[in-house]
Amino acid sequence: MQAIRLVGTKDMEHDEWLEWRRSGIGGSDVAAICGLSRYKSALEVYLDKIGEIPPIADNPKMKAGRILEPVVADWFEEETGIRVQKQNYIFQHKDHPCMLANIDRWVPGENAGLEIKNTGEYSRNHWFDGNTEVIPTEYQLQANHYMAVTGADKWYVAVLIGGWDFQWRVIERDENLINSLITIEENFWNDHVIARALPEVKAQDTNLMNYMFPRSASTSVNISEVYYDLVNRLLVTKTALKQAEEDHEDVKNKVKQLMGENELAIWKDEKLCSWKTNARGSRVFKILGGN
């Protein structure tokens, strides 16, 4: 491994560990700053790094991940015959200090690492395309970030789906992707975190906007003509949204007519939608098929 051992974590308090994480970009941050995360945005990463938002409160899902991590690691060893070692360090890239890595396990003798995941049955389709095994984009980026920091040649990913289905994948080192990640991460760190400049706000930042600006003031702001395109998009998308909502309601009613008194509609042997009577006596329409 070619990474710098920045700090030992074996007896480190959780709050101190969080502070060290704020000193650089970790593997779980990468997809967000690339705009490819399902879970968080570049703005959330930025606010976390400058200490403007509290860390995510511990929850049962996070606790389950911690408890099951050694179980999944042992399962991986048993399934593959590959021995892994826990690493109690935060690692740092030797040439790009803003790039950090908290890796789950190291694979001695292979110049490789292991990332461990625990997910619900609802996420099974993230790991399969039909019968073909796939790897979620977030984890491909995370693994290549770790390979950039450690100099590893490949990274294993082990996942426990629904508490019983163990799966594992291999991600080979991608030099072109790694070079792109180095550029993206350094630019984000220097242009936003160091410069204290907000990254672009996205659709998933609604809650963060409410957090950053919780109260209104009885004042107004004049928006410059520089933002003509932004204002125009606001008005155009409002009209398009209204039309889309009307079109959606039109199609729903046509499907309801086809369903009549039936609770379920089947399309190509799969549940398409339901229209069930609830406890209050009202029928509730839900689309079950599709994405």
Score class of each variant (00 low, 15 high):
11 D>L: 07
12 M>V: 13
19 E>K: 14
21 R>N: 11
25 I>S: 00
33 I>F: 03
38 R>K: 09
41 S>P: 06
42 A>L: 05
51 G>L: 13
56 I>P: 01
56 I>E: 02
58 D>C: 00
60 P>A: 04
64 A>N: 15
64 A>C: 06
66 R>V: 15
68 L>F: 13
72 V>E: 02
73 A>R: 15
73 A>N: 10
75 W>P: 12
80 T>P: 02
85 Q>H: 11
86 K>N: 12
97 P>H: 07
98 C>W: 04
101 A>T: 04
103 I>M: 12
107 V>Q: 00
110 E>S: 07
111 N>H: 10
117 K>G: 05
120 G>E: 10
121 E>N: 14
124 R>V: 13
124 R>D: 06
125 N>H: 15
129 D>E: 13
132 T>N: 04
136 P>S: 14
142 Q>Y: 10
142 Q>R: 05
143 A>E: 13
143 A>K: 10
144 N>P: 09
145 H>K: 06
152 A>K: 03
157 V>A: 07
167 Q>C: 10
176 N>F: 09
177 L>F: 11
185 E>I: 08
189 W>C: 03
192 H>W: 04
193 V>K: 06
198 L>T: 09
202 K>E: 08
203 A>T: 08
203 A>D: 05
212 M>N: 02
219 T>P: 00
220 S>R: 09
221 V>Q: 09
225 E>K: 15
228 Y>S: 06
229 D>S: 10
233 R>N: 06
238 K>R: 04
243 Q>T: 15
250 D>V: 03
251 V>M: 09
255 V>C: 07
268 K>R: 13
269 D>N: 15
284 V>W: 06
285 F>I: 05
286 K>R: 14
286 K>T: 14
286 K>S: 15
